[in-house]
């Protein structure tokens, strides 16, 4: 098993300049590894820093210290210190991230939102659309909605579009932030199935899931982040 994510002594502190510069420690001494084909679920109460860790792995948040090594095209890259364009490369071909909320461009059709990661990786428009259509189908988004921008959709529908987009390109690492939060039982089951399928393909997954049932179904390992929580 190759290590896909190797977090070493990572830490995160927010400095709130607008509140007279108070320091807001979030996590420190974060240490864990994730192997290919493994699904690690981060647990802990709200505010424990689960999302922050996920965002540090995606380089959406900067690390205050430590390393976050990512296996990108065969070599480990410390994403905490990588150049912006390296990070963009890593995101394009190694790390997928399904956030809690879909951030879509106004006016862009749902099918294009989903197909976009494929096109960015050089897949032809026809094939990308075909695969995007199948993904949307699987997540029960009716075809008549595909040409509409997702901004008009309900929360659950948007979340499913987001998931379709996140899973479409079979990247080696997938970060999931509450992927099932606003889904009904049937769609939760679809997502659990998707995760299982991706794992079989060797994807390393780090997820935040509040639903105990889902967690039981997908987790190979549960990491309690309260051990990393920095006391304020």
């Amino acid at each position: 098993m190759s290590v896909m994510i190797d977090v070493t002594n990572a830490q995160k502190t927010f400095t709130m300049h607008l509140q007279s510069g108070i320091e807001l420690p979030v996590v420190r001494g974060v240490n864990f590894q994730v192997d290919a084909g493994e699904c690690v679920v981060l647990s802990g109460p709200s505010g424990a820093g689960k999302s922050s860790i996920l965002k540090m792995i995606f380089a959406n948040y900067r690390c205050g210290g430590g390393r976050v090594d990512i296996r990108h095209q065969g070599t480990l890259i410390d994403i905490a210190t990588a150049e912006p364009r390296q990070i963009l490369n890593v995101r394009r071909s190694t790390i997928g991230y399904v956030s809690q909320f879909l951030r879509a461009v106004p006016r862009v059709a749902t099918i294009d939102v989903v197909a976009e990661p494929l096109i960015a990786n050089g897949v032809t428009r026809a094939e990308a659309n075909d695969r995007a259509g199948r993904a949307l189908h699987r997540l029960n988004i009716a075809e008549r909605f595909w040409q509409l921008p997702p901004a008009t959709f309900s929360g659950g529908e948007q979340q499913r579009v987001n998931i379709a987009r996140g899973f479409i390109s079979d990247l080696p690492i997938l970060l999931l932030d509450e992927p099932t939060a606003s889904l009904d039982a049937a769609n939760r089951a679809v997502v659990v199935g998707l995760i299982a399928g991706t794992k079989r393909k060797g994807t390393a997954i780090v997820a935040i899931v509040h639903d105990d049932e889902v967690r039981r179904q997908i987790a190979d390992r549960i990491i309690d982040v309260t051990g990393f929580t920095a006391a304020a």
Binding site: F14, L18, N60, R62, P84
Partner: peptide, 21 residues
């Protein structure tokens, strides 16, 4: 300076935080 989403979601400087907020 940095990745766009990094600077906007995790602004480090006083002025940037003001701008984002």
């Amino acid at each position: 300076t940095g990745l766009t989403d990094q600077v906007l979601d995790d602004p480090a400087e006083h002025y940037t935080q003001l701008l984002v907020s």
